[in-house]
Simulated scan of single mutants.
Amino acid sequence: MTQLVRRRVVVTGVVQGVGFRWAAAAEAERLGVAGFVRNLPDGTVEAEVEGSADAVERMLEWLAQGPPAASVSRCDVTEVAAAGERGFRIRGTSVG
């Protein structure tokens, strides 16, 4: 069985209003990773990505670039405990 890893990512730059969450969800589906993506009130995008180390690494690389209309200036990645989550969701904007 493949060991699951999970990473929390906060993406900074021009990342809201450019289809970032929908493109991220499509990429997550393509890579077979679980988790979520959502806008934060400060203009950043937060994602948590869970899956095999290789798939999560590929998703992190995608998040560092984003979709064509985005302009990513920074990705802050932290390790979090795997939750055994299935599926990838777009969540509503966090309110705090």
Rank of each mutant, 00 (worst) to 15 (best):
M59Q: 08
E46W: 07
T44P: 06
G51M: 05
W62K: 00
E48Y: 03
W62T: 08
F88R: 02
T93M: 13
A53S: 11
R74C: 12
L63V: 06
R74I: 02
E61V: 05
E48G: 02
E57Q: 15
G51E: 07
S73E: 15
R89P: 00
A82V: 05
V72C: 08
Q65L: 12
A83K: 15
C75Y: 05
G84E: 09
G84K: 11
A81P: 09
D42A: 07
R58K: 11
S73A: 15
R91G: 11
G43V: 01
R74K: 14
L63G: 09
A81G: 11
A64F: 00
Q65P: 02
E85K: 13
T78R: 14
V72L: 07
V45P: 08
D42P: 05
V56N: 07
R74S: 15
R91E: 15
E85Q: 14
S73Y: 00
Q65E: 15
G51P: 05
A70F: 07
A47E: 02
D54V: 11
A47T: 00
F88C: 01
A69T: 13
V45Q: 13
P67W: 00
A70E: 10
A82Y: 09
D42Y: 02
D54W: 00
R74G: 12
L60G: 00
R58V: 06
E57F: 01
T44K: 10
C75L: 04
A47M: 12
E61H: 02
R58S: 08
C75G: 09
F88A: 02
V49W: 01
A47C: 08
S52T: 13
S52R: 04
F88S: 01
A55D: 10
E48V: 11
V49L: 09
A47D: 03
E57N: 14
T93S: 04
S73L: 09
A53T: 09
V80T: 06
A82M: 10
A64E: 14
S73N: 12
V77T: 13
D54I: 11
S52M: 09
W62L: 03
T44H: 10
A64I: 00
S73T: 14
C75Q: 14
G92Q: 14
R89Q: 05
R86F: 04
